[in-house]
Each structure stands twice: as C-alpha cells, then as structure tokens.
C-alpha cells in the first residue's frame, strides 16, 4: 500500500519568477523525509505541490503510477482523501467539535460503507495517543493534545502518506518532543511515508533523509540519523 514518490521537472511559477524548481527527486515508499530551510525558501510550496494543492505547478508529481498534476482538481482531492493525511502547524481543527468528531472528519464526506471503519480507526489512534474520543470541544484542549487530534485525523483514513507542515512549531519543547515520538512511532509502525516541513532539529534528526531548500531550489540532500 505504501507509495513511492517521483518528482520530475517540477516548477511552481510565482509573480516574479519560479517559487520552486525541482528537476528530479525520488523517495522510496515508507521513507521519512524532512524539509528544512529559511523562511520563504519554498518549503510549504514544495509540500503543497507534492499534495497537488498548487494548481499552476508544472512537471510531474508521480505517486506510484499516478501523476497528480495530470488530474483534475476533484480527482486530486479524491486521491488525497484515499492516500494522504495532512498535519498543520496550527492544527486547523473545528474548535466546536470534540476530539472524536475532529479525528473522524473525513467520515462526513467519505462513502457511507467506509464511515464506521474510519471512525473506529480515529478512536483507536486517539486511544493510542492517550486521548479519549469525547464530545468535549477541542477548544479546551492543550496545544499538544490538539496536535494529537490532528495526527489522529491524518491517520484515520489509513493513508500510506503523511504530509506535515511544521507539526511541532506551535508546541513548547517537552510537548514537541513527546509529539514527535508519538508521530514517528505511528508512522513507522504503519509502514507509512512521512514528509515533514520543519525547523525543529530534534524532529529532523530522526528523519531518514533531510532536504534543505533555499530560494526555491534543493541545495542539500543528506541522510539523517535514522537512515
């Protein structure tokens, strides 16, 4: 179920020249890739392009056999729903909903037969992360708890690929370390790929491979500690 990633001639155009240029990048299925770089280097742009969220990107973003950039916006959304989980810096939860409803958000738009399994997985992951799937609104949760709900949401649809944008940046040191541990454990246990944009050296140190982006180009591609 794991998917390898190949980028070819990926260019994301901007107002004054390209925001991002990646001639070639290959990532084996189940690898953990970190992306670092100064602000404005194009890290989030790369992550969004890989997810098929940059509509004007050109080139090829191949997930297995699927070229994401050749698909329509709706087909890309379908692909993401089935194959990708996403984790955001400021969690982007629905504050009014409880942990369970947030984690099982995708059940609201996935086909009816898949809903029960999705909810069960969301509850299971929450449980794994030490959070009960209560109806208490997540507005009252701590940052670390909220990001765990975010992780549960990303894993609830059993996607082989996880994309994370600064998953620990909104958390204090101890919470960030605990969260990193939980996240990587769940990713490795499930044999999933993880692509994480981060400034967090502790997180990056535990990835298989770390890219450095500067001015929209990959300037360094090194093996991390884990590789």
């Amino acid at each position: 179920m794991a998917l390898p990633l190949s980028l070819r001639d990926l260019v994301v155009p901007g107002a004054d020249g390209p925001l991002l240029q990646v001639p070639a990048l290959d990532l084996t299925a189940g690898a953990l890739l970190g992306i670092r770089g100064p602000s404005g280097a194009g890290k989030t742009t790369l992550l969004h392009a890989i997810a098929g969220l940059r509509e004007r990107a050109t080139g090829r973003v191949l997930w297995g056999e699927t070229d994401l950039l050749a698909l329509s916006a709706e087909a890309r959304a379908r692909f993401r729903a089935c194959h990708m989980g996403m984790i955001f810096q400021d969690f982007l939860l629905f504050d009014e909903l409880g942990a369970g409803a947030n984690a099982a958000l995708a059940a609201m738009f996935r086909p009816r037969p898949e809903r029960a399994a999705l909810r069960a997985r969301a509850t299971e992951v929450l449980d794994h992360l030490g959070l009960p799937a209560t109806a208490r609104p997540v507005a009252s949760f701590s940052g670390g708890e909220r990001q765990r709900v975010g992780i549960a949401r990303a894993l609830a649809s059993d996607a082989p690929v996880l994309l994370a944008d600064e998953p620990t940046a909104a958390l204090h040191r101890a919470a960030a370390e605990a969260l990193t541990g939980d996240l990587l454990r769940l990713v490795r246990e499930g044999g999933r790929s993880l692509i994480a944009v981060s400034h967090d050296e502790a997180l990056l140190a535990r990835m298989d491979r770390v890219l450095t982006l500067e001015g929209g180009r990959i300037t360094d591609d090194s093996r991390g500690v884990g590789g």
Binding site: L53, A73, A77, R78, L92, A106, R153
Partner: peptide
C-alpha cells in the same frame, strides 16, 4: 476560509 481550504486539502469534494 482556512478551514474550508483544510477540508479541500484533506480531500473533501467541492460538493461537500
């Protein structure tokens, strides 16, 4: 609109 964008990023169809 951020939450709407998040829904789309998670793969929610336009119709949803």
């Amino acid at each position: 609109r951020r939450q709407i964008a998040m829904l789309r990023a998670l793969g929610a169809p336009r119709r949803f």
